[in-house]
Amino acid sequence: MTTAATFNRTAIMTHAWETVRRANVALYGLRTILRRALRAAWSEAKHKLAIAQVEQQSKAQSPEVARTREAIAALEGKDRWTQADYARIGVLRAALRAAEDHEAAAPDYNEKRNLIASAGGRFCAVTFTKADGTERTMQVKPATLQHHIKGDNATDAGKRAAQTRKARHPHLQPVWDANARAPRSVNLATILRIAVDGIVHEYRA
Rank of each mutant, 00 (worst) to 15 (best):
T3R: 08
T3L: 14
T3S: 04
F7Y: 15
R9Y: 12
R9W: 15
R9A: 15
R9K: 13
I12G: 09
H15Q: 11
H15K: 12
A16P: 14
W17S: 01
T19A: 07
T19V: 07
T19C: 03
R21K: 08
R22E: 10
R22G: 01
N24S: 04
N24Q: 01
L27Q: 07
Y28I: 05
Y28K: 06
G29V: 03
R31A: 10
L34T: 10
R36H: 14
R36W: 03
L38C: 12
S43Q: 15
A52V: 14
A52K: 13
Q53T: 07
Q53C: 02
V54T: 09
Q56I: 12
Q57F: 05
S58Y: 14
K59N: 11
K59Y: 13
A60D: 15
A60F: 04
Q61A: 14
V65P: 15
V65W: 02
R67H: 10
R67Y: 14
R67Q: 13
R69T: 08
R69V: 04
E70K: 12
I72A: 00
A74Y: 05
L75V: 06
K78P: 09
K78F: 08
D79W: 05
R80E: 12
R80P: 11
R80K: 13
T82P: 02
A84Y: 08
R88S: 00
I89P: 11
G90Q: 09
L92I: 12
L92P: 15
A94T: 10
A95Q: 07
R97P: 00
D101V: 03
D101E: 09
D101I: 01
A104Q: 12
A105R: 15
A106D: 06
P107C: 11
Y109N: 09
N110I: 15
N110P: 07
K112V: 01
R113I: 07
R113L: 01
I116W: 01
A117G: 02
A119Y: 08
R122Q: 13
C124N: 09
C124Y: 09
K130P: 11
G133N: 12
E135A: 08
E135G: 09
Q139H: 12
Q139L: 15
V140G: 13
P142S: 00
P142H: 00
I149Q: 11
K150E: 02
G151W: 09
N153E: 14
A154G: 03
A154T: 02
T155K: 05
A157C: 06
R165L: 14
K166P: 07
K166T: 09
A167C: 04
H169A: 11
H171S: 08
H171K: 07
V175M: 13
W176T: 13
A182F: 01
P183K: 00
R184H: 12
R184F: 08
N187W: 06
L188Y: 08
L188V: 07
A189M: 05
T190P: 12
I191Q: 02
A195D: 13
A195M: 03
D197V: 00
G198A: 01
V200L: 10
H201C: 00
E202S: 12
E202K: 11
Y203I: 05
